[in-house]
Design a protein around this nucleic acid. Sequence first.
DNA 1: ATTGCCATATTGTTCCACAATCCTCTAGTG
DNA 2: CACTAGAGGATTGTGGAACAATATGGCAAT
Lengths: 237, 237
Amino acid sequence: MSNDGLAAALQHLDHLAAMPSASERVAEVLRQQIVGGAIRSGTRLTEETISARIGFSRNTIREAFGMLVAERLAVREPHRGVFVATPSRGDIQDLYATRQLIEPAALEFGPGCSPEAVAQLRAIVVAAREGRDAGRPEAVAEANQRFHLAVARMGRSVRADQLMLGVLTEMRLVFHLMDDDRRFHEPYLERNAAIVDLLEQDRRPEAAAALREYLADAERQLVEALDTDWADRARRS
Amino acid sequence: MSNDGLAAALQHLDHLAAMPSASERVAEVLRQQIVGGAIRSGTRLTEETISARIGFSRNTIREAFGMLVAERLAVREPHRGVFVATPSRGDIQDLYATRQLIEPAALEFGPGCSPEAVAQLRAIVVAAREGRDAGRPEAVAEANQRFHLAVARMGRSVRADQLMLGVLTEMRLVFHLMDDDRRFHEPYLERNAAIVDLLEQDRRPEAAAALREYLADAERQLVEALDTDWADRARRS
DNA sequence: ATTGCCATATTGTTCCACAATCCTCTAGTG
DNA sequence: CACTAGAGGATTGTGGAACAATATGGCAAT
């Protein structure tokens, strides 16, 4: 207790040296494959197969599966296995209900809505525009995710942040369900910009209201797009 | 596809027959002991000890530990073990930041704020008053938890609900930190009642504002109480 | 087409082993 | 006396094998 400073410094080194456990590394690999689209929704993840493929024991794989299930990226069906989650319409509605609850509240009442935070939002919008003009829709999507995460962070609650991170990660799964997910975010770029405009004028309630409409429109468009996709798929089979 | 009704009914039976896995049962036992105060904050949970005590293998215990850690009821220190969480001041502030973000938003904008939902809140307040008048502060605390969970449910988001359930569970850990946690909730009972009054008059913005003040006061009182507790404990040692 | 049954595969769980890491205690050193 | 170094013991992290419980799919019988 004599010198907290040294302890803090060592803690820092600790953090640098912190090697994630095997199960966390396995979970991270699978996570990337899932949200990156390399493993499609509905795919069965067999313990032995994964174990053989990436060289960790079944025990470790099971632990990793547990994490993915806890994050809702996968679903466990008892005695059947774990499958990459396929978000249902209900899931999408719930995801947007969560966002409707948290994001506008963070905008309007979040204690972290500082000028620096607004400037960061502005920077993200600028980056998104560059991505759009450069013909890189992936950059636009990524910027959009960063934007909404930054909005949530204005609530200054790590627990809510974590929830929002999980929600936005699940959203990536949703986008992979669509036949054409590349240009989905483009129309919303300028609406993000409008929200930043309002924030720069300290009109937080209006910004929150704009975000609420934004989210409702996005949900509508997403559900409609997926309905036609689902109809197509049903017709094909 | 000929009869969804039957399928739904079978799904229901499935659910009734669903026996939780061993690790979930172990986690549930430990959860109850922790939030009930039988295992105090900071206690080390040794894999072998627990394994021997409740008769499941170390592997299963480890899985259960993972769940508790994911719920923040326990903390894992690599190569040292898992310990029952002891919420810090930062944790308390974060818990209340989360509540400030979600609960008032659910009150003001939640699509689940139906007359029935308000009536349920009213019933909870009545039950809390009975508990208070019967000299059962535990009943008051439990009703208070139910109240705020019901508020959150107005957001109609199972993901946010789950977060709030976790937050309220963590709050129980916080209360166990106090020397006197029995009568903490009593002063807030009538403020809950006032919020229900406003809701019954469809004055949702005012109800949300009242809840925001409520939460800020509760946080202040809690941090102060714990500060003196911490000071006492430091002085004693 | 539906039912009943059996073979097979996968999961859920246990048990054991062992390396890696942390804690404690002792002995030595200045 | 304070402090460092290191040995010893305990616990976790991970691997691997085994087995029971359960789901799947095919085949036969009605």
